[in-house]
């Protein structure tokens, strides 16, 4: 009899705990948003040509992409005939998180879309496990400087089919045909200037 009443008591306690738990919300827990990041930096590192190879110089121009999607500075200068290493770093909590994307390099790829053709040429320098380009590191060659400025759009795609024909050219404006979604999008102006003689006051 004693055991029975104890069992009943235990059942009541368990039952009422379950019931009460089902009646009150939990305190919410803040989530660290995995998909979000705080910003990105585009480093244009000028290279010096030595016969068949390049050396990095200390002459680096940076464009910073902020959380609100704006780029600072809104324009930058590159010199005709020079080659720059474009190194992209993505930041979260002041930490570079490029490796997260590189680990899934087979479904991530950058596209670089100038608003006018023939000013620059981009070459991917990094590869995923299928030997397809990603775009965290690449070379930008400035082909010409005549009269101008152009908009430079940088897009990071996630989940695309990298074997698709639309994913083969670095400057394909129809990159979305390869599928996937945009993880990051930045746009700023590039002002290509003639050999060593650009005058910033012009702008």
């Amino acid at each position: 009899m004693k055991t029975l009443s104890r069992n009943i008591l235990a059942a009541i306690i368990i039952g009422s705990t379950l019931f009460l738990n089902a009646c009150k919300k939990d305190n919410p827990v803040p989530e660290v948003n995995q998909e979000e990041f705080d910003g990105a930096v585009f480093n244009f590192i000028e290279l010096e040509g030595h016969d068949d190879h390049f050396h990095e110089t200390t002459d680096t121009t940076k464009v910073i992409l902020k959380a609100d999607g704006s780029a600072s500075p809104s324009h930058m200068h590159l010199t005709e005939g020079h080659t720059y290493k474009l190194l992209i770093n993505i930041f979260k909590n002041n930490r570079i998180i490029n490796q997260e994307f590189i680990d899934e390099g087979d479904i991530h790829q950058f596209f670089f879309i100038p608003s006018k053709p023939d000013y620059i040429k981009y070459t991917y320098l990094d590869r995923d496990k299928n030997d397809r380009p990603i775009g965290f590191v690449g070379n930008v060659e400035v082909l010409k400087a005549d009269n101008g400025a152009f908009d430079f759009k940088v897009v990071l795609r996630h989940g695309l089919n990298k074997a698709h024909s639309a994913a083969q050219a670095w400057d394909n404006a129809n990159y979305s045909q390869a599928g996937g979604a945009t993880d990051m999008e930045a746009e700023f102006e590039i002002h290509p200037s003639e050999h060593d003689g650009h005058d910033h006051e012009d702008h």
């Binding site: 996630h158 989940g159 996937g180 979604a181 945009t182 999008e185």
Partner: peptide, 9 residues
């Protein structure tokens, strides 16, 4: 094919 990242997509 309905998974999109932004309005451009």
């Amino acid at each position: 094919g309905a998974h999109i990242g932004n309005v451009t997509d």
